[in-house]
Design a protein around this nucleic acid. Sequence first.
DNA 1: CTCCAAAATTGACCATGGTCATTTTATATG
DNA 2: CATATAAAATGACCATGGTCAATTTTGGAG
Lengths: 191, 191
Amino acid sequence: MTKQQSRTLQTRARLLDAAQEIIGELGYEGLRTQEVVKRAGVAKGTFFAHFPDKDALMEILIAAEMDAFLDQAETAPTPDSIEALMAMIMPLIDFMRCERYVFDVILRHSGAAAKDNIGPIALTFARQDEVFTKLLENAPFRKDISAGLMGEGIQAFAIQALALDFCTINNEMPLEERLSIYLDAWLLPEG
Amino acid sequence: MTKQQSRTLQTRARLLDAAQEIIGELGYEGLRTQEVVKRAGVAKGTFFAHFPDKDALMEILIAAEMDAFLDQAETAPTPDSIEALMAMIMPLIDFMRCERYVFDVILRHSGAAAKDNIGPIALTFARQDEVFTKLLENAPFRKDISAGLMGEGIQAFAIQALALDFCTINNEMPLEERLSIYLDAWLLPEG
DNA sequence: CTCCAAAATTGACCATGGTCATTTTATATG
DNA sequence: CATATAAAATGACCATGGTCAATTTTGGAG
């Protein structure tokens, strides 16, 4: 009963290519499903036969970018200071703040979808945990908590710093400075 | 040139009442603007003459609930332990997780709108900062960082705990337990 | 009281994400 | 090759948030 896969894969690839092309021109927020199917040369319904909804497509594309940053982080040496850690995660953070819409999509899906299946972005966050845990195991930071917990805190503070960075009340301080303060207090407490 | 205010206020109140009524029956996610204007007895356009968009209405209603919790927290005594602190903030957290949609709205607006004006939810978060700062000033927690910074961390960890609680990967641990672990590590470090 | 300008309201209309019964296409089988 | 059948694609259609030119209401000035 296993029938035509090549056609399916081809269509999916065309949709993804078209989406990426549009994002290159108009940014993530500017993407319209109508334009995607038009460029892919398929009908509206075909889009939704391949992706449950528009968010699912966005998740795939955004998670792919985030994963690329994690690939780099994975091969990096153990950070020997907060600065080294910051340098390692800033590329990812910069992507996360490239558009308000991107940050919103990431937020919506970081804690996984409301549905039962786990989306690409939630998987990326899980992978972040792993990567951070491994990196922090031998780093010269506090020793009273596990590397995994340290990693979760870094995630939490990164999101907090990003949220405040998008905020008009609080954006007199640059994101990097704010995040540095958070990470100092979190990873090198003196009390 | 100052003309009719009573009419405006009345209409606005009717819209808000209708919205609250619907939320009582169907929850926040179940609210449709069409149903709001129908119950308020006005036309569709009137809704958008009073609120920039549906999110703005949601913000008002959700921020009002959150503010009520802050009112209580404001009159509470200084927490003398993590448990006491948790007891103080759990009502607010429970509201924030009452619906996935509610949490999403809060997240979207906690870091303020992308626009230049500051929404009610962002103001609530700013007020949270103030309330926490005052409460933590004399609390028996770490002394190496400011009360304000401690408060920001509590916010960050609360959101992280909420996000993971909505997540299918990570919800084998109850929110309260996870948040306790975070706050212990954040407010009472031993390294 | 009449008339005017600003404020408020209206509802037809639009944009866009998403659905689904129907049609087309590919492939396995006799 | 002909046929059956399941996968894939189609596009008219729907739901809902949001817009805006036209209309009605309001309160004050003369």
